[in-house]
Design a protein around this nucleic acid. Structure first.
Lengths: 165, 165
DNA sequence: ACAATACGTCAGCTTTGTTGACACTCCAAG
DNA sequence: CTTGGAGTGTCAACAAAGCTGACGTATTGT
């Protein structure tokens, strides 16, 4: 079960290598969320609020249904988070212009300020990691992560990339 | 705020590039946990059980305190998970030989069987991603992830790598 | 007119994390 | 040999964030 093409240069597909990849993901994801988590903990917010804020900032005017699909949670779960953000004046919900059933979500100035604080913290770590590893490593990082996504998530990820052109 | 050394080849450190890295981590981590999650959902277990099982398998005989540090949760939280695993006969807890305060944790045969099912699912996806991306991309992936870890987590990660030699 | 869609909300449950308090065992140092 | 502290386990209470199911309302499109 351990060697697939013994002798060839497929050593990077060893079970041991794969396990190291798994553990690297686990430990790195912890680092990845650590800085925003610290900021959020000082307020009444959690990771779920961060995610909502991030993607509303990324795609201003997005609808609830779209956000639901991106975040992969239930309506009820998102709604709880969204309601507190709206009550606290970080997010605005406007009735859709063409389709009045839809709500278009926007960050307020205060919301943008928090988004900036959070993603600044996260970007700082990411920037340091990218710089340490170098451009080729970053390209590889991105390639592996993209290959690891579910098919629909890969589509949404690509959509977001194209949207920012 | 967007360009740091305009003109140079540091385009990979653009805020936009960093944000894409952030989103890639988010979507990829979802894929990363999706397969084991599906298996666990069919039992009475969750991700926390998976993590405990993984690291007990990785370092048989590890102590509770060590596991606590690796997983980064509280004693009470881990204990709840560990207790159900012991009750269900997946994990054995032996009183330490030299220091009888410590408990050395081991997987039973049944525990190993579950560990195998779970990590098989996870490895399959990881293997596909690694193969798609190629060995150089994998090396870059690992380099970036390692740079993204907290310092103590990086140490634990290296320790685990060395331990399997 | 009617079915489907988008959204919000109520109620209840689960997992996994948290604090705080307390007890027990055991090791080591005084 | 006593005593302090480390390692462990457990009780209680709570919070964040996910889930299902059910229901209501507004709006849209057929």
């Amino acid at each position: 079960m351990s060697d697939y093409h013994s002798g060839e240069s497929l050593l990077f597909l060893t079970d041991e290598q794969l396990r190291q990849g798994i553990e690297a993901m686990f430990f790195a994801y912890r680092g990845f969320t650590a800085d925003p988590d610290r900021i959020l903990a000082s307020m009444a917010y959690g990771r779920a609020h961060h995610r909502a804020i991030h993607f509303i900032n990324r795609a201003p005017g997005t609808t609830v249904t779209n956000l639901l699909a991106i975040l992969g949670v239930t309506k009820q779960s998102l709604n709880r988070v969204l309601r507190t953000l709206i009550e606290d004046g970080l997010v605005q919900s406007h009735v859709g212009k063409s389709d009045k059933r839809e709500r278009n979500l926007y960050l307020t100035e205060e919301g943008k300020a928090l988004e900036n604080r959070l993603s600044d913290a996260q970007r700082t770590r990411m920037r340091a990691a990218f710089r340490d590893a170098g451009p080729e490593a970053v390209a590889g990082f991105r390639r592996v992560l993209e290959a690891m996504m579910d098919k629909d998530m890969r589509r949404r990820y690509s959509d977001l990339r194209e949207a920012s052109s």
